[in-house]
Design a protein around this nucleic acid. Structure first.
Lengths: 326, 326
DNA sequence: CTGTTAGCGCTTTCAC
DNA sequence: GTGAAAGCGCTAACAG
C-alpha cells in the first residue's frame, strides 16, 4: 500500500480528497512520497466500492453506434447530454446493439459499474434489459422510449409535433400523401408519428418503412411510394430530415420537381449545410433534450423523484412544400 | 448480504459466474433465493475491486462529441472500435473536451474505473493527461496521436497518403494549389498532411486552416483561398471529405465550376450519399482502423507488448479533379 | 460439490 | 491534525 510509505492511510486519503484539515507540512510529505512511489492517486474502483458511487452513467443504444450516430440529430442530443454529464463529473458508458444482441448487452449491463442509465435510442426494447436495470435500483431515464413506469421520460409529444407538419401539408391541399417512417413501427416515436398522420389523412395515407435513418434508406422507401405513376402521392412526409433528403433524391431521379410535383417534409430540424434547399420540417430542441434528460439523471441520483419532461417542437416552413399540381 | 439467505457466499458466487461445479439443486435454490430477495447479481464494483478489472475502456476525445462525431469518418472509426469492444465484453467510457477543459478531464480520468484508454481524436493533447494515464500502468492506444512513447499507435501514414492525392493533382498539371487543413496545425495528422503538400508543391502552396471538420468550415476557409481572382489556385486539397464539400460550395457560390475551373480533393473516403459528384479523395479504412486499435487494447490488456500498426490508404479518383484551365 | 477464510484499496467515524 | 479500526461486496485459495 502506497500510503504506508509515510503516514497513515486515513491522512493520505484526506490529502487526495482535499476534504479534511491537513497540516501543510504533512500534505507536502504525502505528495512527495506518492510522487516517488509513482502512486497516481486513489484507486477509483476501491473508492467506488466504499462510497457506493462510480460516477458513470450508462447510455444505451438500440442499434450500432454507426447506425445511431449516422444521424446528426442523434449526435446533437448526445452532445447535449454529454455537456451536462461533463459538468456533473459523470462519465458516459456507451452500451450499443441492445436490440440485436440482447444476451450480450444484458451481461454487459449487469457487469457495468454504473450509477444510472439513460435509454438513448428509440425502440421499445427488450423487457429483460429494463428489468435487469430496474433490479439495480438505479435511476432510469429515457428519451421517450422504452415506455415503462420505471423510466422517467424526456421527450416532445411526437403525435402533436407530427400533426404540425401534417396540417401544414393538408392545408396546402394535399390529399394523397405518403409517409416514410423510421425503422420499427412498434417504437413509440414511430407509432405516434404514424398515428398523427392517420388522424389527418385517414386512409389516403400510404406508408413505407425505412431500414434506418439515412439518405439512401429514405430514397429507397420513397421509390416504393412513387413507383405507381397513377396513384402517386403529391406529398411525402418523412420521419427524419435525412430520410426527407433521400425522398428528394428519389424524386429527382424520377424527374419530379420539389415542391412543384412533390412536396416533401422532414422531422428534427437539423442543419443540412450541404443541402441547397431549406427543408420544411418540425424542429425539436435536440441539444436541450439531451441536457434535460441528463438533468433528470442528476435528480434521480440526488434521490428526487423526477417527473416526465415534455419539450416543445415547432414547424419550420422551408421551400420543399407547395400546393399540389392539379 | 443477499447470499446469506440460503447458502454460503462462495457457492453463490460460483452460481452467478458459472465457473465452478455446482449441483443443479443448489443452483436452483440460490437462483430462487436471489429472485425472491430482488438480488440482481453480483455488484460489479465489488467484483472489479477483487479481480482488478472493470471491463471499461476510456475513449478520449479532444473536443466535444458534437464536434468530433459531426464527421461521418469519425463515427465509422468509433463504430469499428465498438464492434470489437462489444465482442470482448468491454464497455466504452466516453471522455470528451480534453483539449478545452484539461482540469476537469484530468479529474474525470483519474476517477474513472478503467482498464485501458484509447486516444480517439487527433490533437497532440495536454501532456498531463497522458502522464496521468501512464501513471496508472494501463495500456494506452492512439489513432496516430498524441505521439508519445507510452502510447501504441494504429494509423495510416498520413504523409504518404496525402502525397497520393498531391501527386495526382500535380500530375494533372496544377501548380498554384490551395490547402484547407483541419484545425490545429500542430496535430500530427495535420502536420504530416501539410508536409506532404509542401513536398510536392513547395512555395506554390497556400494554406487555410478550418475551424473544424465540417462543410461550413470548409466553405469559409475556401473563400479566403479564392478571394483574390488574380492569384486564385486552380486546385484545392482539403484534409477531409466534409471540408472538400465546403470548398465545392464556395466554388459554386463564386461561379466556379468543379472540376473545370477548380479541382477539389478530400480525405477519408466516406460515403456522401447526399452529394451528387463522386469526390476525388484518399480512402482510409475507418472501420478497420477502429477495430485494429481496439485489438491493440485487447493485446495490451493480455499483457502482450503491442507494436504500432500502419494501415494502408489508397487514392480514389472521382469527378472533381481535372487538368487546370489554361 | 460446498463452506471457511483472507484480503482487494479505499473512506469514514471515532478517539486521541 | 492525525491514527486506528471497521467494513463496502466480492472472488479465489484452500479445506473439507
Amino acid at each position: 500500500m502506497a500510503r504506508l510509505a509515510e503516514v497513515s492511510t486515513s491522512t493520505a486519503s484526506l490529502v487526495f480528497s482535499g476534504k479534511g484539515p491537513v497540516a501543510d507540512a504533512t500534505r507536502t510529505r504525502v505528495l512527495a512520497a506518492a510522487e516517488s512511489l509513482g502512486y497516481g492517486g486513489p484507486d477509483p474502483v476501491a473508492a467506488s466500492l466504499r462510497t457506493g458511487r462510480s460516477g458513470v452513467v450508462a447510455v444505451i443504444f438500440d442499434s450500432s453506434i454507426q447506425e445511431t450516430l449516422h444521424d446528426p440529430y442523434q449526435v446533437l442530443v448526445l452532445d447535449g447530454a454529454a455537456s451536462v454529464f461533463d459538468e456533473l463529473g459523470l462519465g458516459m458508458l456507451i452500451i450499443g446493439r441492445v436490440r440485436d444482441e440482447s444476451e450480450r448487452a444484458l451481461a454487459q449491463l449487469s457487469a457495468a459499474p454504473i450509477d444510472a442509465a439513460m435509454f438513448f435510442s428509440c425502440g421499445q426494447g427488450r423487457r429483460s434489459v429494463v428489468d435487469s436495470l430496474a433490479a439495480r435500483q438505479i435511476p432510469l431515464v429515457g428519451l421517450g422510449a422504452p415506455r415503462d413506469p420505471r423510466i422517467v421520460q424526456c421527450d416532445i409529444d411526437s403525435r402533436v409535433a407530427m400533426r404540425l407538419v401534417a396540417e401544414h401539408v393538408a392545408g396546402l391541399g394535399h390529399q394523397r400523401v405518403g409517409e416514410v417512417t423510421l425503422p420499427d413501427l412498434q417504437a413509440p416515436h414511430t407509432a405516434a408519428r404514424h398515428a398523427a398522420l392517420v388522424d389527418v389523412f385517414g386512409s389516403d395515407l400510404v406508408t413505407a418503412e425505412a431500414t434506418l435513418s439515412g439518405v439512401e434508406s429514405g430514397e429507397q422507401a420513397a421509390r416504393a411510394l412513387l413507383a405507381d405513376p397513377v396513384h402517386r402521392p403529391t406529398a411525402i412526409l418523412a420521419h427524419s430530415d435525412l430520410l426527407a433528403v433521400g425522398v428528394m433524391q428519389a424524386a429527382e431521379s424520377l424527374g419530379l420537381r420539389v415542391p412543384e410535383d412533390l412536396s416533401v417534409t422532414g422531422f428534427d430540424g437539423v442543419d443540412l449545410p450541404w443541402w441547397p434547399t431549406p427543408l420544411t420540417t418540425v424542429a425539436q430542441p435536440g441539444s436541450d433534450k439531451g441536457a434535460r434528460a441528463a438533468r433528470l439523471v442528476r435528480d434521480g441520483l440526488a434521490g428526487e423523484p423526477g417527473r416526465d419532461v415534455v419539450l416543445q417542437a415547432h414547424l419550420v416552413v422551408g421551400a420543399t412544400t407547395a400546393p399540389p399540381a392539379v
